[in-house]
Design a protein around this nucleic acid. Structure first.
Lengths: 117, 117
DNA sequence: ACCGTAGTACGACGCATGTCAAACTACGAG
DNA sequence: CTCGTAGTTTGACATGCGTCGTACTACGGT
């Protein structure tokens, strides 16, 4: 069936660790939808499928946001069958920007506390 | 000379501490020009005049960026005669988002180090 | 072979953003 | 009072961003 290596044609572009830019990461995290994705990735299992997030946006917008997160270096995406697994690149982020992700996540939680409290 | 309290008419709107939103702060910091402003504010004297920054943009763009920083709660601006003093709201930010500003500043320095070799 | 589910691609739309130049206001110095 | 310096305002412009719907592709199950 001319099926060459099953997933070679479905590999996604990720920036190398050293190509990750702080400005892009901050921009990626500055959108509420994307921040919520990152929070769930941080709080839940390390690998989660796109469709498990049920975001308040359409499928295409969803694809868009996941791409922004991937291209900025915040998450890693791999195909697993028909699904797409998402994982935080926390090791890379921690190596580049120590404490940054943790501080953002803590800040988000703190803000939730104020807002809902 | 009908000069009522000298600066009452020149007071600037700042968000209250509790009104500062994480998303807005991250967005404010995600612009290179604004990040450089924040870095100079953090590295240099606590109060600095707009014109001392000599940013690679026009005066009006400069005004725009300082306003974004102020309205997002990152900096405090007060008039001092004909000049306008800018100060980081580090106490407010630290109270709301502990470690966030420090992490971002450290990340910016680290990135500079990598970029400049 | 077929269908359903997961996600992508494309084109569109409206609104925000970063940018500028030019005209304007506010203050201090002389 | 006049002038220069500091910053604002306004209007314009190009681009980018978040959003959508629709049509499409990719894979797994039956």
């Amino acid at each position: 069936m001319t099926r060459q290596s099953a997933s070679a044609s479905r590999e996604l572009e990720h920036p190398a660790r050293d190509a990750i830019r702080l400005e892009s990461v901050l921009h990626a995290l500055s959108d509420p939808v994307r921040l919520s994705v990152v929070r769930r990735l941080a709080d839940g299992p390390p690998e989660q499928v796109c469709s498990s997030f049920d975001l308040p946006v359409s499928k295409s917008t969803c694809t868009h946001h996941f791409r922004v997160l991937r291209e900025s270096g915040v998450i890693n995406q791999v195909y697993r069958g028909t699904a797409k697994m998402n994982a935080l690149r926390d090791a890379d982020l921690e190596a580049l920007f120590p404490g940054l992700l943790a501080a953002v996540l803590a800040a988000a939680r703190a803000q939730d506390g104020r807002g809902a409290g």
